[in-house]
């Protein structure tokens, strides 16, 4: 039961994007389409799960004073693995995400979970926490990406819904990311209050 709570915690109650507001740089940067959001979300989720697991396993071996550098090295290793694997097997996605993959290293949500959760809990609940947070992050990115893609270019996951020419281009550009995110957070907060 407790494990289930750990897992669902990241989905809505402490959703990294809509509630914790962590990892905003990739959130705003890559969500110009739902596909990009999904790719970025899954990559981050993988890194989160793996780094949470490893940090939980080695937490007692690491002296307190060097825990942050150790966590960063662990995270960076997994990010680089993801980067190289993506480049090898899904080059098109790698191209559209580009610079943001290496930036997962400094994504607050990854280090945040390592420090706040994995370094204090056992490996199993750390994996669940990583999975929950990762899926929550993916969910947030996909919702934001789909919203922007739909309003900006009339598509969702590249499927045409209405002609591109009538889209509000601003939503695909950077300012649209802030606007869309703001409104989504407002809507979700409202839903949480009434629920």
């Amino acid at each position: 039961m407790n494990n289930l709570k750990t897992f669902t915690n990241g989905l809505i109650k402490e959703n990294p994007i809509f509630t914790l507001l962590l990892g905003m740089c990739p959130t705003l940067g890559v969500t110009s389409s739902a596909t990009n959001g999904l790719g970025m979300g899954l990559a981050t989720a993988f890194v989160l799960i793996m780094s949470n697991l490893v940090v939980a396993l080695i937490k007692n071996l690491i002296p307190d004073k060097v825990r942050i550098p150790s966590f960063i090295v662990v995270i960076a290793t997994f990010v680089t693995i993801v980067e190289m694997t993506m480049q090898a097997y899904v080059p098109s996605l790698f191209e559209s995400l580009g610079l943001f993959i290496p930036l997962i290293v400094v994504n607050c949500i990854v280090l945040g979970r390592a420090e706040a959760f994995a370094s204090k809990n056992n490996p199993i609940s750390s994996i669940l926490d990583g999975a929950g947070m990762g899926i929550g992050f993916t969910l947030g990115l996909v919702i934001l990406g789909a919203t922007r893609e739909f309003l900006g270019s009339g598509k969702i996951f590249n499927a045409n819904i209405y002609p591109e020419d009538f889209g509000m281009l601003v939503f695909v550009l950077a300012p649209g990311a802030f606007i869309a995110l703001g409104f989504l957070i407002a809507i979700i907060n409202k839903m949480k209050q009434t629920a």
């Binding site: 080695i58 007692n60 071996l61 690491i62 002296p63 307190d64 004073k65 060097v66 550098p69 150790s70 090295v73 662990v74 960076a76 290793t77």
Partner: peptide, 21 residues
């Protein structure tokens, strides 16, 4: 027990982690 934050421990841990990575 948690590893103590002595210079030797910090040095060795980081070295091992970096090596494995």
């Amino acid at each position: 027990a948690k590893t103590e934050s002595s210079l030797k421990n910090m040095f060795l841990t980081l070295l091992v982690i970096a090596l494995i990575a």
